[in-house]
Every structure is written in C-alpha cells, then in structure tokens.
C-alpha cells in the first residue's frame, strides 16, 4: 500500500516531536494505544488562558499513526480547548487521504487530543482546590 504524499511528508519530517514536563500545571498529557496493532501515542498540550500555545507528540507506530499525531499537534496549536475538542478523526482522514485500514490511526490521534485536554482540565481543577 502506498502512503499519500502528505503522510510521507509528516512521516519523514514530523512536526513537534518531543515532550513537555508532565508535572507542569500548564501541560496536559494524553497517552493512548491502538490494540488493533499495538501502536502507542503520547500527545501533550501546553495551555495558557484556555488556549493551546504549544503541542508535542511522540508516537511508536506506523507511518499513518505518526502522520496523524504530527498533524494533530499542528492543528491544536493556537486553538482554544473547546475548539480543539471539535477536531474529528474524519478531518484527519481527509487531510492525509488515509485508506480504510488506517482509519484507526486517525481515531487514535483524536483520542489523544481529548485525553490531553481531559488530563489538563483534571489537573487544573485539582490545583485550584
């Protein structure tokens, strides 16, 4: 199966690879896995005043999973938390022209964004107490 040009682009030059300090209160971490194939993905967001100012990821998986998470970090940057929550895996599928067998990679990226936001919210709620 041939990867689309955009997948190859993200895969060969992934954006925003790396990590933030997990215990930073401004950081939310989402760690998700795809049991269909054993891929693991970590996506982190840095938040200021409800806006995502930076994002990082690290994915161990196939080219489509790496491209999906790379794209996800690009898309969440600059968005508010509410806006980022509306990103759908179908938009990732469309942007990267993912074939049906790779749709679960885009689902993983959507889940990672949601998990990172949920983690940020639960941590900021806890530190406000």
């Amino acid at each position: 199966m041939a990867y689309s040009e955009k997948v190859v682009d993200h895969y060969s030059a992934p954006r925003n690879v790396g990590s933030f300090m997990k215990n930073d209160d401004a950081v939310g971490t989402g760690l998700v896995g795809a049991p269909e194939c054993g891929d693991v993905m970590k996506l982190q967001i840095k938040v200021e005043n409800d806006q995502i100012v930076d994002a990082k990821f690290k994915t161990f998986g196939c080219g489509s999973a790496i491209a999906s998470s790379s794209l996800a970090t690009e898309w969440v940057k600059g968005k508010t938390l509410d806006e980022a929550m509306t990103i759908r895996n179908t938009e990732i599928v469309e942007e990267l022209s993912l074939p049906p067998v790779k749709i679960h990679c885009s689902v993983l990226a959507e889940d990672a964004i949601k998990a990172a936001i949920a983690d940020y919210k639960s941590r900021s709620a806890a530190s406000a107490d």
């Binding site: 998700v32 896995g33 049991p35």
Partner: peptide, 18 residues
Amino acid sequence: DERQLPSGFLMEMFGLQE
C-alpha cells in the same frame, strides 16, 4: 472489551518503547 489492557500496561509499553 476489545480495548482493555492490564492496569498501567500502556504507560509501561510507552516507557519500554522510549
């Protein structure tokens, strides 16, 4: 549940991969 993993497993796998 086709997504269930042993507790802490995912974090361990990520750590091992790293």
